[in-house]
């Protein structure tokens, strides 16, 4: 059976040369996205750098490897859908959408300003490529469920992808949605958990311990994989494997909050705090030199 990845790339995944090419292509894109994320939050003077940077690689692999989509035709009926359930990581999504060509990159520098298209959290009414508005945690996965049900009803082979957070997983609605996806056997749904271990008040394990998260999803009937959420090749392989399941797929991506900027990595304070001008300049330099 040919996977959709093979359709795109023409060769099968394990080939070393192709893997190297893929890695260097995606890592280069991710580097640019991280630069944009830091710049846009720095210019805005507010926002959530930590959780944006932790999911950059996941979004890059989705939009530049895995998903079937047409940036110039955002409502193309056969597109794959993406929902950013952890809506506060909007800067990462915006930067990816701009890079893919959904809108002009200049929009990024107006983030969070009065009258700007790019709101603090994603607004589907005004941003091309944003399928549904998110921001109140725990709600995006339910919406992804609805999309998966709707696409299946229409007989489309489009897939639905959703990124949730670990702190977000403390919301009860996540588990209501976990039950529904499993009950209706939504094999066309793949969820990535940005498991960065931190939330506003501190470590997830100290604020409200999530316990054995992989076991939880397994017990809800999901096909669970665990990966390094910053290894682009691992992410792509996991996304491809998820295509094959007849059940909803959960990819637990172990990530580092603030990934790519030394002083933001694993720093709780940078959950919801913008860098100062100097910090921004330093962060941009670090990313450029990486």
């Amino acid at each position: 059976m040919k996977t959709r990845a093979q359709d795109k790339e023409g060769v099968s995944l394990p080939e070393v040369e192709r893997e190297l090419k893929l890695r260097s292509r995606l890592e280069e894109i991710a580097k640019g996205i991280r630069w944009d994320v830091v710049k846009m939050i720095g210019l805005a003077g507010s926002g959530h750098p930590g959780g944006s940077l932790s999911c950059v690689d996941l979004l890059v692999c989705l939009y530049f490897y895995k998903m079937r989509h047409r940036p110039t035709e955002p409502f193309w009926p056969d597109r794959d859908r993406f929902v950013l359930s952890k809506g506060h990581a909007a800067p990462a999504l915006y930067a990816v959408l701009a890079k893919a060509g959904y809108f002009h990159r200049e929009e990024l520098w107006k983030l969070r300003r009065l009258g700007a298209m790019l709101q603090g959290h994603p607004d589907s009414k005004v941003v091309p490529g944003v399928e549904i508005s998110t921001g109140s945690l725990g709600q995006g996965l339910a919406a992804a469920n609805g999309m998966a049900l709707g696409l299946r009803l229409d007989g489309r082979d489009s897939r639905v992808y959703c990124v949730i957070g670990d702190g977000e997983s403390q919301e009860g609605e996540i588990w209501e949605a976990a039950m529904l996806a499993s009950h209706y056997k939504l094999g066309n749904l793949t969820v990535l958990l940005d498991n960065n271990g931190l939330q506003i008040d501190g470590r997830c394990s100290e604020v409200m311990c999530l316990g054995d998260i992989a076991m939880k999803w397994r017990s809800f009937g999901w096909e669970v994989q665990e990966i390094d959420g910053h290894d682009v090749v691992e992410i792509c392989q996991a996304l491809d494997r998820a295509d094959e399941a007849s059940r909803p797929g959960m990819i637990i991506a172990h990530t580092i909050k603030g990934k790519g900027v030394s002083f933001m990595e694993n720093a709780v304070d940078f959950h919801g705090k913008a860098p100062t001008r100097e910090e921004m300049e330093q962060a941009l330099r670090e990313i450029e030199e990486s």
Partner: peptide, 19 residues
């Protein structure tokens, strides 16, 4: 949707995005 009204509303929203 079972006894889970919050998820039901979100699922409804997602279905609506597919027309």
């Amino acid at each position: 949707c079972g006894v889970a009204e919050q998820n039901m509303m979100g699922t409804a929203a997602g279905l609506a995005t597919t027309g």
